[in-house]
Design a protein around this nucleic acid. Structure first.
Lengths: 165, 165
DNA sequence: TCAGTGTAGTAGAAATGTCAACTATCCGGT
DNA sequence: ACCGGATAGTTGACATTTCTACTACACTGA
């Protein structure tokens, strides 16, 4: 018995007026949950196996590689990844220990820290990228037609905005 | 400088023929990454604050509440959640400590373990559901039009299939 | 100048998830 | 009956993420 049905049984005593999902909406939502879980797992597994990187580390490398001077402030990095500051601190600390990035205090703002991509970090990214892109294609991009993928992107962008970036 | 551009610079020495994402595809993919990160965070935060549950725990409660006798085999639960067995073992162990579920050895298969939703667990789900559904609507369902949401669901279902459920 | 408030980043503990054994049970073939 | 390989689940070590509190610096207004 679904909770939805159960709560409807309460009838007039239910003063909350909950707008439950329709069963079509339920199906979509469950599909999203399952698909996103499997996708994250597939990507993480491939990266770990073939490049020894977590998805979070890979994303850090990507942002840095695209930024001016291959350097970003910690907070900018955190915002751009939609990860907490604390999380980025820990992730970057691990990466620094492995020589992928280097931290330097920011001259312009004494509180700030610049995170810089080292040559070793860039090389690691170059080595990891082809396999990662192949996995993204295999698990997502090539599975969908252009229309589906475009709408998926628009939808998720709208979600990000709604939640308030 | 993007990695994409850099690797193209290698020109004829690049024998890998990597099918990089187009910039449109990049945008979609990044939007997905950011949106899904923010969505998971928003849902988890709401549940934790208002119901003292993690999203993983909530999902366990939902599956059990919908199953025959409010009971599922651990492995069925794991498959249905797309979580690893180990993860489900740990999650269920925590929930059992809090009285939300009870484990009992399976009579039919000596190796099996049945996970049963307690009355307290069901009550907890009933209490949590309205707020959770409201958050799902606010952050996802009501942000999209019907068409977008339907295609999102279809796309993610296709992804789940492609990755091999 | 300097008090108050906000921002940047970190640190360590607690919670959660992953990974690699490990035990116990089941099933299929001989 | 019994061997051997698969399946179900757990365990504990380890890695990662979250949570909370903390330090240091920056900005604003009196």
């Amino acid at each position: 018995m679904t909770l939805h049905a159960v709560t409807e049984d309460r009838g007039a005593t239910d003063v909350e007026h909950v707008r439950w999902l329709t069963s079509d909406q339920q199906r979509c939502w469950r599909a999203y949950l399952e698909g996103s879980a499997r996708l994250a797992e597939a990507l993480g597994r491939q990266l770990e196996a073939e490049a020894g990187l977590s998805l979070a580390e890979y994303e850090v490398l990507v942002r840095l590689s695209e930024s001016d001077g291959r350097t970003m402030r910690m907070s900018v990095l955190a915002d751009s990844l939609a990860h907490s500051r604390s999380r980025v601190t820990h992730t970057v600390a691990r990466m620094e220990k492995h020589g992928l990035v280097a931290r330097q205090t920011c001259s312009a703002d004494g509180r700030g820290v610049n995170c810089h991509l080292t040559d070793a970090g860039f090389a690691r990214l170059e080595a990891a990228a082809p396999g990662h892109v192949a996995q993204v294609r295999e698990s997502l991009v090539d599975v969908l037609d252009d229309e589906q993928f475009r709408i998926l992107g628009e939808a998720m962008a709208a979600v990000a905005v709604a939640i308030g970036r």
